[in-house]
């Protein structure tokens, strides 16, 4: 069953509904949604991240769209993806977890 959107839920329970394409920037999420078996995520189109806080998840999602927008772009003027130093470490951990 093809999906256009998926729901990502942060540790605090904040729900983000984003494009399926964007979510798939994370290999981990793509696997969760497309794995052979009928895991709950695949069935519900929803992934809960009990270890990722809302701001980190939000920033991550922003990155998904940023990546999607520019990864095949030919323009030389790709804007910088700004990361606030305070969240840099946590964001790095999340990126590692999500393989994105």
């Amino acid at each position: 069953m093809p999906r256009n959107t998926v729901k990502l839920v942060s540790a605090e329970g904040y729900e983000f509904i984003i494009d399926y394409k964007a979510a798939c920037v994370s290999n981990t999420i793509r696997n969760m949604l497309s794995s052979q078996g009928s895991f709950t995520e695949t069935e519900l189109g929803e992934v809960k991240f009990p270890e990722i806080t809302t701001p980190i998840l939000e920033k991550t999602i922003q990155y998904f769209y940023y990546k999607l927008r520019y990864q095949n772009s030919t323009t030389k003027n790709i804007p910088e993806f700004k990361v606030e130093p305070q969240i840099a470490l946590e964001l790095l951990m999340a990126a590692n977890f999500l393989d994105s």
């Binding site: 981990t28 696997n31 078996g37 069935e43 270890e51």
Partner: peptide, 11 residues
């Protein structure tokens, strides 16, 4: 596998 959470196992 239908009752399993991929995210939990992965985590």
């Amino acid at each position: 596998a239908s009752g399993l959470s991929f995210e939990e196992l992965y985590r």
